[in-house]
Design a protein around this nucleic acid. Structure first.
Length: 148
DNA sequence: CAGCGGATCGCCT
DNA sequence: GGCGATCCGCTGC
């Protein structure tokens, strides 16, 4: 999976974040070390996958919103039950990777999920975050130019 | 302890 | 482009 769309979320300074109010059982992974996986249920139906980026006790995370499946495409198609739109949305991305709430609190590299090849792509776009009603003025959504 | 509303998706037009 | 589906965690009383 090549990631091409992410959004940043903060803590007590970000009204749109799940960690805005306080630490709960659900958002606890957000307070963990960088590289911790945070998964939450959205609209009672979908799973959304985040990677913690801040220090312990300082909730910051990145929501993986979109990507292109390049490996294990057959498996992704089976999980998604359709040949296209495999990961062009947070819920779809999690489903394509077979990530559920069970993975919340795990750590990158422990067997559940791995991220490699980190780097800043040339010419990415910055826009406001999507699907939220608070702090919409913050342009914390990042997408690569190629895949839009 | 109950009510509310959401970091969405897919199907319809 | 617009709306209905679908539950569980959180908040407030």
């Amino acid at each position: 999976m090549l990631l091409n769309e992410v959004e940043a979320y903060g803590g007590s300074d970000d009204p749109a974040s799940h960690a805005f109010r306080s630490k709960t059982k659900r958002n606890e992974p957000m307070f963990g070390a960088a590289g911790t996986v945070y998964v939450y249920r959205s609209y009672g139906i979908h799973w959304c996958l985040n990677i913690v980026t801040g220090n312990v006790g300082d909730p910051e995370a990145v929501l993986l919103r979109g990507g292109t499946v390049v490996e294990g495409k057959d498996a992704a198609i089976t999980r998604r039950r359709r040949p296209d739109h495999l990961a062009d949305g947070p819920g779809k991305l999690a489903q394509a990777l077979h990530i559920t709430g069970d993975s919340s609190g795990s750590v990158l590299g422990d067997g559940v999920l791995t991220i490699s090849g980190l780097g800043i792509v040339d010419g990415y776009q910055v826009t406001p975050r999507i699907g939220i009603t608070k702090a919409t003025e913050r342009e914390w959504r990042f997408l690569s130019r190629d895949t839009g």
